[in-house]
């Protein structure tokens, strides 16, 4: 088992003919992802690496029955792409696009919740279940099949930590990049709930950063409901207040959202917090001994 995606997931790529869309379609195909269709309005009837391109999600659904969509559309058009997939009842939407305005995301998130559609991202590296399927932009070769669930607000920092896990023989069940924006489709708690029910996942690595209160909420959830060990890493201990640290959501507002308060919340919940990325596999090995 795994969460969210596996070898049977039928993937639709929205924005498949764009620079990023086509590049990552190639890499996902090489990884073994079951891509069934692409959509770019106006480019229907063509193909990208042998994948048929449709003008609309409606057409793609009719002909190829995808159950997951990945979106590479630029921010001005990404919101429409999300609604298009949602209105065609695709149950899982992964949005790679960075730069979607907050006011748009408020509406998107509330709309999708009403329709019970799961959104991952935006501004995220996607989801990977090693050796089965990659719906995202992460470098596939650093991942290894195994029992550690990974959930993270970041991209390259996730790769750094996953690489350390793999070097130490700790493979991953599924790794989920939930995204670095203030409003995201799935928060830490949403993904932890899935890992809780997944018998393949024995322990979880949670990679958080400054801004917001999702880590604190996750700590509370872990304390009361989560029955597997969790190791956390929080980036931004040295970040100044009131500055957006690259990610739109990584900002300490007033005195809220500091790394310190997140670390304290985890420690109170009995979650070990690594001080350095390289400590993550060491702590995990201790716990799983």
């Amino acid at each position: 088992m795994s969460i969210l995606i596996d070898r049977n997931t039928r993937v639709l790529v929205q924005g498949i003919t764009g620079r990023d869309g086509s590049f990552h379609t190639k890499l996902m195909l090489e990884y073994g992802t079951n891509i069934v269709a692409g959509v770019t309005p106006g480019k229907g009837g063509t193909d990208v690496y042998g994948i048929p391109v449709f003008d609309s999600v409606k057409d793609a659904v009719k002909k190829t029955s995808p159950n997951c969509s990945i979106i590479f559309v630029p921010p001005q058009f990404a919101v429409d792409a999300i609604y298009e997939s949602a209105d065609n009842n695709i149950p899982l939407i992964v949005v790679i696009t960075e730069g979607i305005p907050i006011h748009d995301m408020i509406k998107v998130k509330n709309y999708l919740d009403k329709k019970h559609i799961r959104l991952i991202g935006p501004n995220c590296p996607g989801v990977i279940t090693p050796d089965e399927s990659k719906v995202g932009i992460m470098p596939g070769h650093i991942f290894k099949r195994g029992n550690i669930g990974v959930v993270s607000r970041s991209g390259t920092l996730t790769y750094e930590i996953v690489y350390q896990l793999t070097l130490n023989g700790l493979g991953q069940s599924t790794a989920v990049g939930i995204g670095g924006d203030p409003i995201i489709g799935s928060k830490f708690i949403d993904i932890l709930e899935l890992f809780n029910k997944d018998d393949k996942t024995e322990a979880v690595v949670l990679i958080g950063e400054i801004g917001g209160t999702d880590e604190q909420d996750a700590a509370e959830y872990i304390k009361t409901n989560f029955n597997k060990p969790v190791v956390a890493f929080i980036a931004g201990r040295t970040a100044p207040a009131e500055k957006r640290m690259g990610h739109a959501g990584a900002i300490i507002a007033g005195s809220e959202g500091t790394a310190q308060e997140k670390i304290i919340a985890f420690e109170k919940a009995g979650v070990k917090v690594a001080s350095l990325p390289e400590e993550v596999p060491k702590i995990l090995k201790e716990i799983l001994k």
């Binding site: 390259t156 750094e160 400054i210 980036a235 990610h247 350095l276």
Partner: peptide
């Protein structure tokens, strides 16, 4: 490269 890794680099 990457905001999360950049923050973690400052921290380290």
């Amino acid at each position: 490269n990457g905001a999360g890794l950049a923050m973690a680099t400052m921290d380290i």
